[in-house]
Simulated scan of single mutants.
Amino acid sequence: MSSVREWPKTERPRERLIKEGAQSLSDAQLLAIILRTGSNGKTVVNTAIELIQNFGSLRGLDEASVGELKKFKGLGTAKIAQIKAAFELGRRVLSERAFEQVFNSAETVFRYFYPKLNGLKKEVFITLLLDTKLRLIREVKVSEGTLNQSLIHPREVFKEAVKESAYAIILVHNHPSGDPSPSDQDIDITKKLKKASEILEIPILDHIIIGNGRYFSMKERGII
């Protein structure tokens, strides 16, 4: 199989990125730039394609442990470190942007959280702590796993909000099924937390459920 160096310059990932921008490249081509070289007689692009296929998606690759990555033929310590570093940099960029973002709509919250929560196999319940300008103070993971009344207790939801003197909070969780429609339990938990928010005078601005490419806003639907 020919080396990437033998490809026309217009087809080489690095050259295309510089000329056309990173957005013009596929996931595999971007990953190929991070990996730099192929393995086992395969081009780096083919290696990248096989990696994504093996772990199912970029998220699957991100969530893979170092041990799981080592089982993939051709991935040594250096390449694994490069992959992990690239994903971590992406997360840090998202975190920096969050502090500049005004969380004043369900659409804004969805755009911020969808890349983080889409494809997860477990439900994750997160509280966004906001200041008076509706900018992020920080986000707090309250629980991970199937949501129930015992896990999502007002004490756990509001503890950090009180500590940080948050002006308001937004509740966010995902549905691994991809359907963001709320369950009866989702609605019951929200109403319970709403009562606690009124006592503490820390308003819940919304509870947003993230699904596959779409969301459900309890504020927009008049539930809170």
Results as ranks from 00 to 15, higher is better:
Asp179Met: 13
Leu69Pro: 01
Lys79His: 07
Gly178Cys: 08
Ile52Glu: 09
Val142Ala: 02
Arg59Pro: 03
Phe87Gln: 01
Leu17Ile: 00
Arg5Tyr: 02
Ser143His: 10
Ala85Thr: 01
Pro182Asn: 09
Asp179Arg: 11
Lys79Gly: 11
Leu171Met: 06
Glu20Trp: 05
Lys121Leu: 12
Leu31His: 04
Ile170Leu: 06
Glu198Met: 15
Ala196Ser: 14
Glu20Phe: 08
Lys121Pro: 04
Ser2Asp: 12
Gly222Ala: 09
Leu128Gln: 08
Leu30Gln: 11
Lys191Trp: 14
Pro203Phe: 03
Ser183Glu: 05
Arg14Lys: 05
Arg16Ile: 06
Ala86Glu: 07
Lys163Tyr: 08
Ala98Cys: 03
Val124Pro: 05
Thr146Gly: 00
Leu89Asn: 02
Ser65Gly: 15
Arg214Leu: 09
Gln53Thr: 10
Pro180Asp: 11
Leu130Pro: 03
Phe216Ser: 03
Thr47Lys: 13
Pro8Trp: 02
Asn104Val: 00
Lys84Trp: 04
Tyr215Cys: 05
Ser181Gly: 07
Ile224Trp: 00
Ala106Pro: 04
His173Val: 13
Tyr112Glu: 01
Phe158Met: 05
Ile18Arg: 07
Ser95Arg: 13
Met1Thr: 02
Glu107His: 05
Glu6Gln: 05
Thr146Cys: 00
Ser150His: 00
Ile83His: 06
Thr37Asn: 15
Tyr167Thr: 12
Gly222Ser: 06
Val162Ile: 15
His207Thr: 12
Leu94Asn: 00
Gly56Asp: 02
Ser217Tyr: 10
Gly178Met: 10
Pro176Ser: 07
Gly222Thr: 02
Thr47Ala: 09
Phe125Ala: 07
Ser105Tyr: 04
Leu117Arg: 12
Lys79Trp: 12
Ala168Pro: 06
Lys194Phe: 14
Arg12Tyr: 06
Glu201Val: 13
Ser143Asn: 02
Leu136Thr: 06
Gly90Asp: 01
Leu193Val: 07
Ile210Met: 10
Arg214Trp: 02
Ser143Phe: 09
Thr108Ser: 08
Leu129Glu: 14
Leu30Val: 11
Thr127Asp: 02
Glu201Arg: 15
Ser2Pro: 09
Tyr114Glu: 14
Val66Trp: 05
Gly56Glu: 05
Glu156Ala: 10
Ala86Lys: 01
Glu164Thr: 14
Glu220Thr: 13
Leu58Arg: 04
Gln185Gly: 02
Ala98Arg: 10
Leu75Asn: 12
Asp186His: 00
Lys73Glu: 13
Thr127Met: 09
Lys70Glu: 08
Tyr167Arg: 09
Ile210Gln: 03
Arg135Leu: 12
Ala78Ile: 15
Leu193Phe: 07
Leu205Ile: 02
Ser39Ala: 15
Gly41Glu: 04
Lys42Met: 14
Leu128Ser: 04
Ser24Ile: 11
Glu96Arg: 13
Ser181His: 06
Tyr114Cys: 08
Leu200Ile: 14
Ser24Ala: 15
Thr132Ser: 15
Gly74Tyr: 09
Gly38Ile: 01
Arg111Pro: 01
Ser150Val: 13
Ile209Leu: 11
Glu139Cys: 00
Asn104Asp: 15
Val142Trp: 03
Glu68Gln: 12
Thr190Gly: 15
Val124Cys: 03
Trp7Met: 07
Arg135Val: 03
Ile83Tyr: 10
Thr47Arg: 12
Pro115Arg: 05
His153Glu: 01
Ser39Asp: 08
Lys195Ala: 13
Glu198Asn: 00
Ile210His: 10
Lys192Tyr: 08
